[in-house]
């Protein structure tokens, strides 16, 4: 029989006091991709997002060990708050991970912040070829040229809402095509 995985709060409770290295590793493994996504959205860089994962995990694990997280049942909210604080601090020019990590001897497992594998370029091109020209244009303008829905709408004579609908439909087609290998 397979054991039921511990939930986040149970792992957090075990970390309080500082002896449960397996719980720290598991909590880090779970939260790393969530923190990374937050970093991608707010820092617009995969390298910076990887740095954010490291810094946030060091702060969270340290706070848990020291019993400074008030409500362990919502440890995810503490992580989110830490993400916000760290990003805001970086925007003010603060960096403190190295000092914290060395003072408190928290070791975040390596490799947690790596990005998931990207789609194969050849398959993706085949899937893009299956789109109609307007769908393809919207995706290229959105992701390659990094233009907003308003800007794309202005170029193509569409409302921003229409651009979003076309973008959604096109992305769904490409995603289905890549997932099923139908190109």
């Amino acid at each position: 029989m397979t054991a039921t995985p511990e939930d986040d709060a149970t792992l957090a409770r075990r970390i309080v006091g500082g002896a449960a290295h397996d719980a720290e590793a598991e909590l880090s493994r779970r939260f790393a991709p969530r923190i990374r996504l937050y970093g991608i959205r707010h820092l617009r860089s995969e390298d910076a997002a990887a740095d954010l994962v490291q810094e946030v995990l060091v702060i969270v694990l340290t706070a848990l060990r020291q019993g400074r997280v008030d409500d362990l049942s919502i440890v995810d909210r503490f992580v989110l708050g830490t993400c916000r604080n760290v990003v805001a601090g970086w925007r003010r020019g603060e960096r403190r991970r190295d000092r914290l990590a060395s003072e408190l001897m928290v070791a975040v497992p390596a490799g947690l912040a790596s990005a998931p594998a990207r789609a194969d370029a050849l398959r993706l091109m085949g899937c893009m070829d299956q789109l109609d020209s307007r769908e393809r244009s919207v995706l290229v303008l959105t992701y390659f040229e990094e233009r907003s829905a308003d800007e794309i709408g202005g170029s193509l004579g569409l409302s921003p809402g229409n651009v979003r609908v076309i973008r959604h439909r096109a992305l769904q087609h490409v995603k289905d095509c890549v997932d099923t290998g139908a190109a």
Binding site: P33, P116, R118, A119, A121, L124, T142, Y143, E146, K175
Partner: peptide
């Protein structure tokens, strides 16, 4: 993450 990986691939895909 899957959506982000797909859109990152699109961003890297040159026309």
């Amino acid at each position: 993450e899957g959506v982000q990986a797909l859109t990152a691939s699109l961003a890297a895909l040159l026309p």
